[in-house]
Amino acid sequence: MIRRTMSAARLLAGVTALTAVLATAAGCGSDPAPTTGAAPSGPASGAPIACNGSGQLLGAGSTAQANAIDIWKVAFGTACPDITVTYGGGGSGAGVQQFNQGKVTFAGSDAPLKPEEVTASKEVCTGGQGIDLPMVAGLISIVYNVDGVDDLVLDAPTVAKIFNGQITKWNDPAVAALNPGATLPNTTIQSFHRGDDSGTTANLTAYLAAAGNGTWPYPPSKTWAGQGGQSANGSAGVSAQVKQVQNSIGYVELSFAQTNGLRSAAISTGAPQPVAATAANAATTFAGATVAGTGSDLALNLDYATKAAGAYPIVLVTYEIVCDKGNKSGTLDALKSFLTYTISGPAQQAIGTKGYVPLPQEVASKVQAVIPTLS
């Protein structure tokens, strides 16, 4: 077994420098790290970081966490040069499928495993099963590109009707009522949704189902069910379409909104003021998350219908899907090293500067306790 260590202070300095370079290259502002839901201190933020094992770690799935993985794999590779992390997107559905086919070591999914997916995972997790480890927290921005509108406010029923083809004009009375004083154009709304099975879609539709007062007639799902609109693959694809097409609307993670310079709608939740799409406001929502999974599975319950002041409701958690038992012996040590790094304080704070939300200490501590038990 190969062992190397790098001090957390040294790694944190490297991560900070990397994220500064990425932010400059992106040419857009970033939210400051939230003051609530702080990243864990954990074993990796004050102690040496062990680089155990070697070889290539293959992952696939969620595009929501793609920007986070890009930061992590460069910083981790610098600390642990004998381990190479390769991550392909394709959406949460594709990632879980590849994991259950034994093609990747871990999958990223913005929705926890379904019972049938857990059953399928037992074919590749010898003596065990797939589990959900929350690793990347974020929020879904309702991004828009509307002539003359800089500060748009929407609520769940209005978003549901727009994406289901029932509100078709930007100056519709429902939109106007939420935006008094705004000059809304009498133009057709061009909506974009994910064409691939996506955990981002699952979380958006969970919000619409929970807070839409019956206006979203479909169950939450990774597969888009709304009527009308146009599809695009991945968060990058939706972002590109909204940026290019005038009078359009879509939904992507905040990091993609920031990278592409897209405006995000504030959400009227019933709180005293509409809630802006910021990492700090999402952290307020995550502070109330509870664990729904059992045993080593740490799937979370999220309150999409929150009306708390300053709580942004359209949030998501990306889980790393791994085997609790039956991981491939050749990559197990490297996998545990990588996951230990990604849940560490420095790693969570690094992605916090790119539109993500450092996981609350209570959640991170549970993940840190599970990782050493993987076998």
Rank of each mutant, 00 (worst) to 15 (best):
S221G: 04
S221R: 11
K222L: 13
K222D: 11
T223L: 11
A225W: 09
A225L: 13
Q227E: 15
Q227W: 09
G228C: 08
G229F: 05
G229C: 01
Q230K: 08
Q230M: 07
S231C: 10
N233I: 15
N233C: 15
N233W: 12
N233Y: 08
G234F: 04
G234R: 02
S235C: 13
S235M: 05
S235R: 03
A236G: 15
A236F: 13
G237R: 04
G237P: 06
Q241K: 13
Q241G: 06
V242L: 01
V242Y: 01
K243E: 03
K243R: 08
S248P: 12
S248K: 01
I249C: 05
I249P: 04
I249T: 07
G250K: 07
G250E: 00
Y251G: 08
V252E: 00
V252K: 01
E253G: 15
L254H: 06
S255L: 07
F256M: 06
F256V: 03
A257C: 02
Q258P: 02
T259M: 15
N260E: 11
N260G: 14
G261L: 06
R263N: 04
A265W: 02
A266M: 12
A266W: 06
I267T: 07
I267S: 08
I267V: 11
I267K: 04
S268Q: 12
S268M: 15
S268K: 11
T269K: 11
T269R: 12
G270A: 13
A271M: 13
A271R: 01
P272F: 10
Q273C: 05
Q273G: 11
Q273V: 14
Q273P: 02
P274Q: 14
P274K: 08
P274G: 02
P274V: 02
V275I: 14
V275S: 02
T278Q: 00
A279T: 14
A279Q: 12
A280H: 02
A280T: 09
N281H: 10
N281V: 00
N281W: 00
A282R: 08
A283S: 08
A283L: 03
T285I: 00
T285M: 00
T285F: 01
F286I: 06
A287D: 15
G288R: 09
G288Q: 11
T290L: 08
T290M: 04
V291S: 08
A292S: 05
A292K: 09
G293I: 01
G293A: 06
T294H: 10
T294R: 12
G295N: 00
G295M: 00
S296H: 10
S296T: 15
S296F: 15
D297V: 05
D297S: 03
L298G: 15
L298Q: 11
L298S: 10
A299I: 08
A299Q: 10
L300G: 04
N301D: 15
N301A: 09
N301R: 09
N301H: 06
N301L: 12
L302F: 10
L302P: 14
Y304K: 05
A305M: 14
A305I: 13
T306R: 02
K307D: 07
A308D: 04
A308S: 07
A309I: 13
A309L: 11
A309Y: 07
G310L: 11
P313G: 02
I314M: 03
V315Y: 09
V315C: 01
L316Y: 08
V317H: 13
V317N: 14
Y319P: 00
Y319Q: 14
E320H: 15
E320L: 15
